[in-house]
Design a protein around this nucleic acid. Sequence first.
DNA 1: ACCTATTGGATAGCTATACTATCCAATAGG
DNA 2: CCTATTGGATAGTATAGCTATCCAATAGGT
Lengths: 227, 227
Amino acid sequence: MRISELSRRSEVPIPTIKYYLRQGLLPPGQSTGRTQAVYGEDHLRRLRLIRALVNVAGLSVAATREVLAAVDAHTDTFAKLGEVHHALPSPMPEAEPPDSTATSHASELIAAMDWQVSQRSPHRTQLAQALAALRRLGFPPDTEILRRYAELADQTARIDLDQMMHQEDPIDQAERALVGSLLLTPVLVALRRLAQENEAAARLAPSKHVDHGARNADDSAGEPRAR
Amino acid sequence: MRISELSRRSEVPIPTIKYYLRQGLLPPGQSTGRTQAVYGEDHLRRLRLIRALVNVAGLSVAATREVLAAVDAHTDTFAKLGEVHHALPSPMPEAEPPDSTATSHASELIAAMDWQVSQRSPHRTQLAQALAALRRLGFPPDTEILRRYAELADQTARIDLDQMMHQEDPIDQAERALVGSLLLTPVLVALRRLAQENEAAARLAPSKHVDHGARNADDSAGEPRAR
DNA sequence: ACCTATTGGATAGCTATACTATCCAATAGG
DNA sequence: CCTATTGGATAGTATAGCTATCCAATAGGT
């Protein structure tokens, strides 16, 4: 197909497609003359992915180029997944390097969870930075609480991986990992907020909306109920 | 204190403080003359919160103004928490209104979880939008998988609420809710990615890093292990 | 073969956001 | 008294993410 059809089918304006081509987000089409090129279904697919990463996951164009480059790298599955994963942009726009206290807190948590992660994984640094920011605000993260969050993150990751393993083609698998990591995050954020809203209503206004069990403000500071 | 001291202690340049004042993020100081005003500890505290929301949580200045206005609204605790919660910005930069399929999928999930949330909660819409985006990309979210994610979100929210209930003052509590919702998210994202990295290593390269139990690629597509 | 519309490629322009800098008259404080 | 700082106003800057225009070279219908 030519660019006008690509534009129509993807609902992305032609100038924007040209912009993505210039930025290296979208590979150029097959040239069939000096002023003509054809695009395939994979271009359409890639274009939709770009739009989702930029408009849904909120990635910058530069960050999108990074992760897509990792997807396209021709390495084996294991290396590719690692590469894609390390190319994931930080959710924190700007952040100073974390202090040593936060760094060691992060390392201790990872060790306590028995997680085997590369020493130079960017996510280590991100965790330390986020913990440092919380501490600067006067909300030092409690070790025990963090362990509980980490346990839930671990269970979430197992579901994520179940989802990613359904593909044979490493490229598809890498794309799936991208979708699973980046585009599932808004879903998880929304779910967490809905759960918070429900839990807050149950704890703060026990007279309203109550339809199960004894929930009242008194148990609010205690251990969570058994699952 | 005067503005220069506020600037020095918060490490925010004076022109930026003036900008936040103009934008209504920071309440004006107490005027002590036509060209002088004094600021208190609460200004310093608020300024640090603003910086964290903008630079760590990645909120726009406009979104920051919204949530801070909700924190400052003088209502009872229950209403304030709801107001703050509904003022939380969407993680999705731009999104069309979701189609009816996605909307009803979202509602079904909420009903299945027995969550009591307002019919006009913005998080409902956000969930539907995120689900619609996934479906457009060819990764239709499976109902059963979503339920498992929702269960984990529910448990996460209980820990969140435990954290928020430790305050008496409604303003402090609202601020804490903000921190818990917005600034904890980078921590949770980092934890999830670390857990993914660990899980991927365990499943794809069972010969390396293995120090516990029988993990191999064969169980990668099956049910996750019992917890 | 002719002619109009479209194309790729290049360059320039636009809009919004988040600051950053400058100016000014009015003090504050040594 | 006199210099530095302040609040308030206005203007400027940098970056990101498009959007628009121009151009010569075709493609494709007739």
